[in-house]
Amino acid sequence: MPEAPAPARPTILAVWLILAGAVGWWAAFSLTTERFHLLMDPTATASCDFSVLVQCTANLESPQGSLFGFPNPILGLGGWIAPIVVGAAILAGARFARWFWALFWVGMLGSFVFVCWLISQSIFVLSTLCPWCMVTWVVTIPSFYAVTLHVVRSGVAPVGPRVQRIADSLMSWVPLMAILSFAVIAVLAQVRLDVLGSLF
Rank of each mutant, 00 (worst) to 15 (best):
residue 189 A to E: 06
residue 183 A to V: 14
residue 163 V to A: 10
residue 160 G to I: 08
residue 171 M to P: 01
residue 185 I to N: 10
residue 177 M to D: 04
residue 147 V to D: 03
residue 131 P to F: 03
residue 183 A to F: 15
residue 157 A to M: 14
residue 167 A to G: 00
residue 163 V to S: 00
residue 156 V to M: 11
residue 146 A to K: 09
residue 165 R to V: 03
residue 144 F to S: 05
residue 177 M to W: 07
residue 142 P to G: 08
residue 158 P to V: 11
residue 185 I to H: 07
residue 187 V to N: 11
residue 169 S to R: 11
residue 144 F to D: 03
residue 185 I to W: 09
residue 171 M to G: 00
residue 175 P to S: 14
residue 145 Y to P: 03
residue 173 W to E: 09
residue 172 S to K: 00
residue 179 I to S: 07
residue 149 L to I: 00
residue 149 L to F: 01
residue 153 R to T: 04
residue 139 V to F: 14
residue 141 I to A: 09
residue 135 V to M: 12
residue 160 G to D: 13
residue 171 M to T: 03
residue 173 W to A: 14
residue 175 P to F: 14
residue 159 V to L: 11
residue 183 A to I: 14
residue 180 L to G: 12
residue 148 T to N: 04
residue 167 A to E: 01
residue 153 R to K: 13
residue 148 T to R: 00
residue 189 A to G: 10
residue 169 S to T: 10
residue 183 A to L: 15
residue 145 Y to N: 05
residue 146 A to Y: 13
residue 165 R to Q: 07
residue 182 F to S: 05
residue 151 V to N: 04
residue 155 G to L: 13
residue 148 T to P: 02
residue 165 R to P: 00
residue 137 W to G: 06
residue 164 Q to F: 01
residue 158 P to I: 08
residue 176 L to D: 03
residue 159 V to K: 07
residue 153 R to S: 05
residue 170 L to F: 02
residue 135 V to K: 05
residue 160 G to T: 07
residue 188 L to Y: 09
residue 139 V to W: 11
residue 181 S to R: 08
residue 152 V to I: 15
residue 168 D to T: 12
residue 144 F to H: 09
residue 173 W to G: 13
residue 136 T to P: 02
residue 179 I to E: 06
residue 165 R to D: 02
residue 167 A to T: 01
residue 188 L to H: 10
residue 172 S to Y: 04
residue 163 V to M: 10
